Amino acid sequence: MRRICIIELLSAKMVKSFSAIREDELSNVISSIRSMRGSIVNISEKMFWFTNSVSCRASFGKICKDRNEFITIVKGVLSLIGGFDVADMFPSWKLLHNISGVKSRLDIFLAGTETSSATIIWALAEMIKNPNVLAKAQSEVRQVFKGKKKYDEEDLEKLTYLNLVVKEALRLHPRVPLIGPRECREQADISGYTIPLKIRVLINAWALARDPGCWDDPESFMPERFENSSIDFTGNYFDFIPFGAGRRMCQGMSFGLANVTHALAQLLFTLTGSSLMELIQKNLDMTNIWITATKKNDLLLVATNHSSNEVF
């Protein structure tokens, strides 16, 4: 199943072919927001629906008929992830995993929906918190998209600074804070600690990405730290592993990044910075749910009337 997903859904060629789906679903999101002028818009919910629709259409060619029920289930699974599962206490007892049913629910749709939407929200929240970053990213997007009714993959590749923003958002808010578990194939000694053979370990990607010994001013959101840097997502730089590393790193990396970059670019193109800035004091709680690193409270914006080519 893993091999089929990689070839038929997650390869670079297939991810590029889904561009029309992403554009169509983003158009639906923008139209929905435009219809809500004067009202509070739950951007977190909109992005959740967007990433879910893209995942379903890419997999099945259409939106799930029972999408409302499915999204309710997905959100329920997310709450379970942060809770306690008795099967975790006895990992070798396969019967417990079958009874609990938790493991069977964590599929590609959960990963494709929640991880991408949460990254979009964290990137937006951090840009709102850092107006200079917001202005720079928005200026780049509007310059690249200027005079165009539609944009393509080549246009997105020109968004150098926006890609730095995504990297920095994933550094501060990795989608999987704890990577693993992994079983040691041989005994190892690390920093004075002996890791026995066959012991299961978790990698704290969140702590690595905020280690002051590896990063300058690690708690600050500074996309510029990645300028002229060879650090990427491929897992070769172990202080920055938002998608894991090695043979078991996330195979949906390209699919997720495409959804994130497309959505942020379109939102920055249509949002007005002034309306975003109005929410700094009103709705910028940066508290997260630790185990899933999801923003605790939804990001809400207020749709107001502006020029015809802008939403807020």
Rank of each mutant, 00 (worst) to 15 (best):
G256K: 03
G112N: 06
K16E: 11
L271M: 13
E183P: 09
G273E: 13
F238V: 05
L279P: 04
A135W: 04
T113E: 02
R175I: 15
I43D: 03
I241V: 13
I195T: 09
S53I: 00
R182T: 12
P196M: 08
N42Q: 07
V86P: 05
R210G: 09
K94G: 12
S230D: 13
I7K: 15
R247A: 11
L279A: 11
E126C: 03
R142Q: 15
Q281Y: 07
W290V: 14
E69D: 10
T287S: 15
L172C: 10
T234H: 02
N28Y: 02
F60S: 04
Q138K: 05
I190A: 09
D189F: 14
I280A: 07
V260N: 01
V102H: 14
S254A: 08
L159I: 00
D239R: 07
K296L: 14
D216L: 08
D232L: 01
N236D: 06
E186Q: 15
N132E: 10
D216R: 13
N305H: 14
F221K: 00
S139G: 11
F70K: 05
Q251W: 11
S229Y: 04
R37M: 07
A20S: 14
T119H: 00
I241E: 01
E140N: 10
D66P: 04
G101R: 06
T72C: 06
K167N: 00
I21C: 01
K13Q: 12
K75F: 02
S31A: 10
S117Y: 04
N42I: 07
L95R: 13
E154V: 15
W49F: 04
N163S: 09
Q138C: 06
K198F: 13
L134W: 06
Q143W: 06
V165Y: 00
T234P: 00
S307K: 13
M253W: 04
P91H: 10
A303Q: 12
W49L: 08
K282M: 09
S55G: 03
H173G: 09
V141Y: 01
N305W: 10
S117L: 02
L170E: 00
P196Y: 11
I71M: 12
W49P: 01
K146C: 15
N28C: 06
